[in-house]
Amino acid sequence: MNIFRLTGDLSHLAAIIILLLKIWKSRSCAGISGKSQILFALVFTTRYLDLFTSFISLYNTCMKLIYIGCAYATVYLIYAKFRATYDGNHDSFRVEFLVVPVGGLSVLINHDFSPLEILWTFSIYLESVAILPQLFMISKTGEAETITTHYLFCLGLYRALYLFNWIWRFYFEGFFDMIAIVAGVVQTVLYCDFFYLYVTKVLKGKKLSLPA
């Protein structure tokens, strides 16, 4: 555990909590892509199956349970409790274009051809692109609530911090996981355009809106 890994995990946790609180407090999931949230629930489910097979640490187990629990709670709020506020017309990204290629790739390129390992690989690849329905939705509506941009910033920051964590681990522990690193770079790059808008607009007190 190094400082980048810890702050990355906390940033990820902050993102998840911000989104849950935003929906809960405003009693609305307007502007949130339910499809992205279903993909994240799928990511955590397929990645954390090792909860049943190996124990790493109390921290590890607790965080996994919190992430999974929050992911399903978010999906429940969007598709059940506050379904009337869900903006399905703008959430029109075709997720099969992500899930099918990612599934194929995880079967082809993995560390070990075993069910659990393929599912872990699937989750890593899927996580890297799971935010696309949300970004697509924002590009379609041309704007995002400020609280939603804070969520996205924390979520993007988390993987960027993991990149530094992997550099740290490579130098000080000789550890590297090529699948996680390549997918992590892709994931971080997808946020770059958003990071730019966040810094130039939201941090200066303006609402995030895209030119028509």
Partner: peptide, 10 residues
């Protein structure tokens, strides 16, 4: 030694 199959990250 690290076991690549034991994923200790989240």
């Amino acid at each position: 030694e690290y076991n690549i199959y034991q994923h200790d990250e989240l």
